[in-house]
C-alpha cells in the first residue's frame, strides 16, 4: 500500500468507475492498466476483464440453471426449479406472443436470454459496492500487486461495452430481418419513401435513418445510464460511511432504501430491454407500407 496516495472522495469514486483493463500500453507493454488514463491510452485493443468475467459467469449461471431444468423437464407435476423456470419462460413467451406478430423461432429464446442475463448482471448492483472489489484487491495484494491500482467493476451493465454489445447484436438482427423479409429494395424504400413520398427523399432518409440508428443507441444507453446512475448513488452512499457515526447510520438507512428501490429498477430495465428488442424485431418483420 503506497502511503503517498491519500484516499480522497474523488479518488474513491474514480477507483470504482474504472474497469480492470487488460491491453497493450504504448509505453508499458502488455498488462493491466494502472489507472483510467492508462486504460484510455491502450486504445481500442484492450479488454475489460472484469466485465467479461462477470458477464460470462452470470450467463453461464443462467444457461446452467435453465439447461439443468430443460434436461429433466417433465410434462407432469413440475418440481421447484422447473416451476420457477417455467414461470419465467411463460412470462417471456406471453410477452413475445403479445408483441411479436411474425413467425420466428429465434425471438422468444433471444428475449429470454436478454431478460435473464440482463437481470442477473443488474443484480450484481445489489451487492455492497466495496465487497467484491475489496476482496479482489486483497487477493491481488497477496499476489504482489498494489491494491490501489487493482480495479474491479462487478456490474457488467455499467460498462457501455456490454450494453452496446447487446444493442448492436439486436440492431444487426433488425437489419438482417428487415432485408430478409422485405428485400433490399423494400428496406431502402422504407427508409427513403416515407413519410413525405418520393419527392422528399433526402428528408425521409434523414428522419428514418435517425429513427433507425436511435434504436440501438437508446437501447444501450438506457440500460447503461440507469445502471451507471444507480451504481453511482451506491458509491456516494458508501462515501458517507467515512463521515462519523451519524452519517454512517444515515448511510445504512439510505443504502437499504436505495437497494429496495433498485430491485424495481434492475427488473424494469431488464424487462424494457427485452420488450424493446421484441418490438424492434416485430417492426423488422412487418411490411407496414
Amino acid at each position: 500500500m503506497s502511503s503517498s496516495e491519500t484516499l480522497t472522495s474523488q479518488g474513491y469514486i474514480q477507483h470504482h468507475l474504472t474497469n480492470l483493463t487488460l491491453g497493450v500500453h504504448p509505453e508499458h507493454g502488455l498488462g493491466f492498466a494502472h489507472n483510467s488514463a492508462e486504460a484510455a491510452e491502450m486504445g481500442f485493443w484492450a479488454i475489460n476483464v472484469d466485465t467479461m468475467f462477470f458477464s460470462i459467469l452470470l450467463g453461464v449461471v443462467f444457461i446452467w440453471l435453465f439447461r439443468k431444468v430443460a434436461d429433466n423437464v417433465t410434462a407432469g407435476v413440475p418440481g421447484g426449479a422447473q416451476n420457477f423456470v417455467e414461470w419465467i419462460v411463460d412470462f417471456v413467451e406471453e410477452n413475445v406472443r403479445g408483441s411479436f406478430s411474425g413467425k420466428n423461432p429465434m425471438v422468444a429464446p433471444l428475449a429470454l436470454t436478454i431478460f435473464v442475463w440482463v437481470f442477473l448482471m443488474n443484480l450484481m448492483d445489489l451487492i455492497p459496492v466495496d465487497l467484491i472489489p475489496h476482496l479482489f484487491g486483497q487477493l491481488m495484494a497477496v499476489l504482489g500487486a498494489d491494491p490501489h491500482h487493482v480495479y474491479l467493476k462487478v456490474v457488467p451493465t455499467t460498462d457501455p461495452n456490454a450494453t452496446f454489445g447487446m444493442a448492436l447484436m439486436v440492431f444487426f438482427m433488425v437489419l438482417y430481418y428487415s432485408i430478409k423479409m422485405k428485400g433490399v429494395g423494400g428496406f431502402l424504400g422504407e427508409l427513403t419513401l416515407q413519410p413525405f413520398g418520393k419527392w422528399g427523399m433526402p428528408a425521409n432518409l434523414i428522419l428514418e435513418g435517425i429513427s433507425l440508428l436511435s434504436k440501438p443507441v437508446s437501447l444501450a444507453l438506457r440500460l447503461f445510464g440507469n445502471m451507471y446512475a444507480g451504481e453511482m448513488i451506491f458509491i456516494l452512499i458508501a462515501l458517507l460511511y467515512s463521515g462519523g457515526v451519524v452519517l454512517a447510520g444515515t448511510a445504512g438507512v439510505l443504502q437499504f432504501v436505495w437497494a429496495v428501490f433498485h430491485i424495481l429498477i434492475i427488473t424494469l430495465q431488464a424487462f424494457i430491454f427485452m420488450v424493446l428488442t421484441i418490438v424492434y424485431l416485430d417492426m423488422a418483420h412487418q411490411e407496414h407500407h
Binding site: T18, G23, A40, M42, F44, W45, T51
Partner: peptide
C-alpha cells in the same frame, strides 16, 4: 469507460 475490444 472506454469503448474497446470488450464490445466485440
Amino acid at each position: 469507460m472506454n469503448i474497446n475490444l470488450t464490445l466485440f
